[in-house]
Computed example of a mutant assay.
Amino acid sequence: MARAPLWAPPLLAVQFLTRLPVPALARLDAAAAADGFARAMAWLPLVGALIGGVTASIFVAAQALWPPVIAALLALAVEALLTGAFHEDAVADFCDAFGGTARGDRAIEIMRDSRIGSYGALGLGLMVGLRLAAIGALPPMLAAA
C-alpha cells in the first residue's frame, strides 16, 4: 500500500469537513489517498476547531454592526457554506430515520435517502434555532471562546 505524503492527511481532513477546494490532493493515487485518509482522522479535531474559530470570528465581527441574533444567523450561514451543511444534513437524516418507528435496515435506508421528511425538517429547524438562541445569548468574547 502506498504511503501518503506528510502533507496529505491534514489536507484530506480539510477536504472532508469543508467545501474548500484542495487541488493538491488530485496528485494522490487511490492507495495513497486511502492511507492519507486513515491518518487524516487525527486532524479532524483541529480542522473542526478552525471551522469553529471562523464561525466565532464572524459572530464577533458581525455583532459590532448588528444585534446578536443577526450576527448569530450570519455566523451560522457562513459555517453552513464553509462545511456544505455537513452536520445539518446528518441531523435531518437522523431525525427522519428515528423520528418515526423505523429500526435497523429501514432506518439506514431512510438516512441514505437524499430527501428530507417532516421529522427531518422539524429536527433541523429546532437544531438551528437552538444553536441560534445559544450563540445569540452569549456575550461576544465568551462566544468566541
Results as ranks from 00 to 15, higher is better:
L50I: 14
L132T: 10
A40T: 13
L132I: 08
L82M: 02
F94R: 10
L6V: 13
L12N: 04
F94D: 07
L73A: 15
L132N: 12
A80G: 11
W7T: 11
A40H: 11
I70D: 02
R115Q: 15
L122D: 03
A143F: 02
A30Y: 01
D96T: 09
F16E: 07
P67M: 00
A145Q: 13
A85P: 03
D113G: 12
F94G: 10
F94C: 14
A64G: 14
G136Q: 00
I70S: 11
V91L: 03
F86Y: 07
P9D: 04
A31M: 04
L122C: 12
A102F: 02
D105Q: 12
I70T: 14
A71M: 00
T18P: 10
A75Q: 02
A134R: 09
A143T: 09
L138T: 03
R27S: 15
A31W: 03
L138Q: 13
V54Q: 11
S118T: 15
E88H: 05
P139I: 00
A32E: 11
G52S: 10
P23R: 04
L20M: 13
F37T: 11
L44H: 15
A71V: 00
F16Q: 12
P139W: 01
A2E: 14
Q15Y: 01
L46H: 13
A137V: 00
H87F: 02
P10L: 03
V22I: 10
A56N: 07
A40C: 12
L12S: 04
P140A: 03
L76S: 12
G104N: 09
T101C: 09
Q15T: 03
R19W: 04
V54I: 14
M111L: 07
L50M: 14
L65F: 00
R27E: 15
P45Q: 08
D105H: 11
R39F: 01
S114G: 13
A62T: 01
A90E: 07
A143K: 06
I110M: 08
L20K: 12
G123W: 00
R19S: 10
L50T: 15
A33P: 08
L76T: 04
S57F: 05
L76N: 09
G100Q: 07
V14Q: 01
A26G: 07
G104Y: 03
A38I: 02
S114M: 05
A33M: 08
L17S: 09
A90D: 05
P45V: 05
R3C: 12
